[in-house]
């Protein structure tokens, strides 16, 4: 590994970081080798997730948050995610449009990503992207999810504080929103609150939160799961958040910067609560476990995949299925065993 390149990364060199993020996004081996070197420099940044329906104003809110953090003298990196077209695999990434005021500020770095088929609101490698930006020394990392609104619960695993952005006038739709998106919020932002129905939306959210209270599993319940390490997908998405925190509901008009003081205060309060929760080592361990499981699954999948594709292993397997000389269950087991023996 090129020492000069690592040095540049750790000193927040924009070109080097931009390059590494491309390697990560494109799944290149260089990215993995670099991330191994960077990991011990991570853990300093504050990661904030921003999710919510399309058109709720996530990018405009992100823009406002950048301003706020810059005023405090903090550097900010933005990870803005938009969907890839399932047909062509291409994408139009337009989140930067609303953040152009910061394009000449050295303390702000904005990078757009396409989901490339990944579901859950992030991309397959957002964890790696956050590690890279963290190690490079950005103080704040804002992760803005795709914005389809239903299943974007992944971001809360990565973020210290998760904002769910909604707009008034959704009426009964709030009821229809899947429990997931409500449960992941540390702070609800009712944006465009100059529109009719903002107070009603706030009331409905309050009711939903009241109903949901008590149903939330405690950290102890999540951790002790029969003493086993739970590697299921559900375990990965389980919410590990400060027990005592009651989600705040904040009204904003992001376009005009209204309500941002309240939002900033709520976010600060949550971060304090989060830091308190970190004094409990089992809280930190639970978050680390989730992080590891995600990387472990991805590594397994990638290695398994490259084995299948190398030396035409997949062709042999298909042939055996075709002439019924073996079955896909046995063949899958054999392929995994072969993987292990390869070291």
């Amino acid at each position: 590994m090129d020492e000069a390149f690592i040095e540049k990364l750790l000193n927040r060199d924009v070109r080097a970081v931009a390059r590494l993020l491309r390697w990560i996004d494109d799944g290149m081996e260089d990215a993995r080798q670099t991330l191994k070197r960077l990991y011990r420099h991570t853990g300093k940044a504050t990661v904030i997730g921003i999710t919510g329906n399309p058109g709720a104003g996530k990018s405009t809110l992100t823009d406002q948050l950048i301003k706020r953090f810059r005023k405090r003298g903090l550097t900010v990196a933005v990870v803005a995610i938009d969907p890839s077209s399932p047909f062509s695999g291409g994408a139009i990434l337009g989140d930067r449009i609303r953040m152009q005021d910061h394009s000449l500020d050295d303390g702000v770095f904005i990078r757009s990503f396409a989901t490339r088929g990944h579901l859950g609101g992030l991309t397959n490698t957002t964890t790696d992207v956050v590690h890279a930006l963290d190690a490079a020394g950005w103080d704040i990392i804002l992760v803005e999810t795709v914005g389809v609104g239903q299943d974007e619960v992944e971001v809360q695993r990565l973020a210290h504080t998760t904002l769910v952005v909604m707009t008034p006038g959704m009426g009964d739709e709030i009821q229809a929103i899947k429990a997931g998106i409500l449960e992941i919020a540390d702070v609800f932002v009712v944006n465009k609150s100059d529109r009719d129905g903002a107070d009603r939306t706030v009331r409905e959210l309050e009711q939903m939160l009241d109903l949901g209270r008590g149903a939330k599993p405690t950290l102890g319940e999540i951790l002790h799961h029969g003493g086993k390490v739970d590697l299921s997908e559900q375990a990965e998405d389980k919410r590990i958040a400060p027990d005592k925190w009651v989600p705040r509901i904040i009204k904003t008009v992001a376009l005009r910067g209204e309500g941002m003081d309240d939002l900033e205060k709520a976010m600060d309060e949550h971060m304090e609560e989060y830091k308190k929760a970190c004094e409990d080592s089992s809280f930190v361990e639970a978050r680390l476990k989730q992080e590891f499981v995600e990387i472990y699954r991805r590594t397994l999948l990638n290695r398994g995949w490259s084995y299948l594709m190398s030396e035409d292993h997949i062709k042999g397997i298909i042939k055996k299925m075709k002439d019924h000389s073996s079955d896909p269950y046995t063949l899958a087991e054999q392929a995994i065993e072969a993987l292990g023996s390869k070291g």
């Binding site: 077209s85 139009i92 337009g94 930067r96 394009s103």
Partner: peptide, 12 residues
């Protein structure tokens, strides 16, 4: 360009 499978960053 998107329809041809590329990722396009549009800045306005």
């Amino acid at each position: 360009l998107r329809d041809a499978g590329m990722e396009v960053i549009y800045t306005g």
